[in-house]
Write a protein that binds this DNA or RNA. Structure first.
Lengths: 157, 157
DNA sequence: TATAAATACTTTATATATAAGATATATGTG
DNA sequence: CACATATATCTTATATATAAAGTATTTATA
């Protein structure tokens, strides 16, 4: 016999169902994009995320902490190791910050920049394909709801 | 000087913005729920997910492979280790499948069941709180769009 | 200036994710 | 039955996530 429902309140049930749906969408898309990046370029979504944050930063440089807090696809866990490996692959360069001797600055290398530009264009196609089932206006409505959701989530805690 | 936009097509730009928003929402909520589960119960979201999948399964049992494919919060990476640690903590029991000697069946223990029931109720409150900013009808619209999105994503590849 | 507190990064340990391959068993076909 | 192939799980290696503690430096304040 299956277990009885633990949650009685309809609003709460609806919220949980929505959350699971949101999570499923995000995971599916993440897996899909991650697999393609790995297959086509041999790099993880985490690295693509890091390259992306650096690319849009002024002078393509960020202090380690700033990079860590901006990472989306990944979390900032073991940022040191991530940068170590990316540096070993020639994607980024780490140098001391002359203004603050506690701090290190990470810069996108020429190699990293060229690689990211190629990856980003194809990544854009893949993302667009993923949303193909939705109309332009549905995309906008969806985004508007998600923005409100995120703002509420962020103002919590 | 900041880099020029790599993506020109408006639909594609919109898609990428939406995807980043979706990812941000999912990550924020995941981090929030994971931190609370860890703080209140000392278990990860991955474990909660596994307990949840087992709880809703017939007889609260699943073959290892079936459990692995149903995991949402996590992926099936190192499912063996996950089950090992949960078994060591007394949450689940692993026993051979009499119908197939290649197969092992994972069952929620009494301890695991009791724990999950407590966790699930509180988890429901937390999830509901996260969506507090949205109206009932907005919840429904959002879910409808996400279901269509997921179906499109899943039918791809 | 002296010192407490905060900050930036690293280190360590453990948990989890991903991929490749090993082993045992099951299944389908001849 | 013999064999090829598929399946279920485990093992190993590496990448990434999370948490706690350590070191060097900066900042705030007495």
């Amino acid at each position: 016999m299956a277990a009885a429902k633990l949650i009685k309140d309809p609003r709460e049930q609806q919220s949980v169902r929505l959350w699971l749906e949101l999570l499923r969408c995000a995971k599916t898309q993440e897996t899909r994009l991650g697999a393609r990046l790995r297959k086509h370029y041999g790099h993880s979504l985490t690295r693509f995320d890091a390259l992306s944050q650096l690319y849009r930063a002024p002078d393509m440089t960020l202090p380690v902490t700033a990079l860590a807090t901006r990472l989306l696809a990944s979390s900032s866990g073991n940022i040191t190791g991530l940068i170590d490996r990316m540096e070993a692959d020639g994607l980024v360069v780490r140098s001391p910050n002359p203004d603050d001797r506690r701090s290190f600055i990470v810069r996108l290398s020429k190699t990293g920049t060229t690689l990211f530009e190629k990856m980003a264009i194809e990544h854009g196609h893949w993302v667009r394909d993923g949303f193909e089932g939705l109309s332009d206006s549905e995309l906008k409505n969806l985004q508007a709801s998600l923005i409100r959701l995120r703002k509420h989530l962020e103002q919590e805690d």
